[in-house]
């Protein structure tokens, strides 16, 4: 899925013109980016939270050469999916692969 697919959904559901749907979706993502750039978090209930985290500098290692290098302090963006999204992703009716349910292995 790309932005074009999201624009298409908005076009179908909201009744905007294609152009308006594209502009509105663009504004949503631009706003999100600007907010995160300021270090502010975004909380989308039912979807998840985008959080900017301050990382302290630490010593890392070049895995190729083994050389130690300092990784500078930085701000990174993390996404934490909401419980609702996690549950939706893992349907509740998936049978537990226990002995009682385990299907015979494919022969």
């Amino acid at each position: 899925m790309t932005k074009a697919d999201i624009i298409e959904s908005v076009y179908e559901k909201v009744g905007f013109s294609k152009k308006e749907a594209a502009d509105v979706v663009e504004m949503v993502f631009d706003t999100i980016k600007e907010t995160l750039e300021r270090g502010e978090k975004i909380k989308i209930s039912g979807f998840g939270n985008f959080i900017v985290r301050e990382k302290k500098s630490r010593v890392g290692r070049n895995p190729q050469t083994g050389e130690e290098i300092e990784i500078s302090a930085r701000r990174v963006l993390t996404f934490r999916p909401s419980q609702v999204l996690k549950n939706a992703l893992n349907g509740p009716d998936e049978p537990l692969p226990g002995p009682a349910f385990s299907p015979p292995p494919a022969q």
Binding site: M1, I6, S9, V14, F16, V25, V28, I44, F47, A88
Partner: peptide, 22 residues
């Protein structure tokens, strides 16, 4: 409706096992 649709459609795609690239 727009905001709801944006995140619902993303959620639906993920639930179908689809990846999303913005």
């Amino acid at each position: 409706l727009t905001i709801e649709t944006v995140f619902e459609s993303m959620k639906d795609a993920l639930c179908k096992g689809e990846n999303i690239e913005i």
